[in-house]
């Protein structure tokens, strides 16, 4: 069970308080109506799904209800950092080799 630091509550809390929302930084296209079916499908469904460093969206569902981002190694499950929506990750895949 993960121990996740909520950047809004400034506390470590148990995974049970959080919900996972998949890959982070997937921006909704600004002009959906001009997207092709392929572009729209890519936005909705297609994911990086990396083995190793992953930037992902969580929300503190049973806490402050705020969303935030987590950089996590999907193999070791280590959480490398948490950061707020709108911020960019400091730890990226190339810096940390995946196992």
């Amino acid at each position: 069970m993960f121990h996740i630091y909520c950047p809004h509550c400034s506390e470590y809390r148990e995974e049970e308080e959080f919900h996972y929302h998949g890959q982070a930084h997937i921006a909704r296209p600004l002009d959906p109506d001009s997207c092709t079916d392929e572009e729209w499908g890519n936005y909705m469904f297609f994911r990086k799904n990396p083995k190793g460093i992953h930037h992902e969206l969580w929300d503190h569902a049973a806490g402050c209800r705020k969303f935030f981002n987590v950089t996590r190694n999907t193999v070791t499950y280590e959480i490398k950092e948490v950061y707020k929506i709108g911020e960019q990750p400091k730890v990226v895949a190339d810096a940390v080799p995946s196992k």
């Binding site: 998949g22 890519n42 469904f45 297609f46 994911r47 990086k48 799904n49 990396p50 083995k51």
Partner: peptide, 16 residues
């Protein structure tokens, strides 16, 4: 599959 697809240069609608 996602890892292998990445090697082939495309993404899949999958999460592991």
């Amino acid at each position: 599959s996602g890892v292998m697809a990445a090697k082939a240069g495309f993404q899949l609608p999958l999460e592991s």
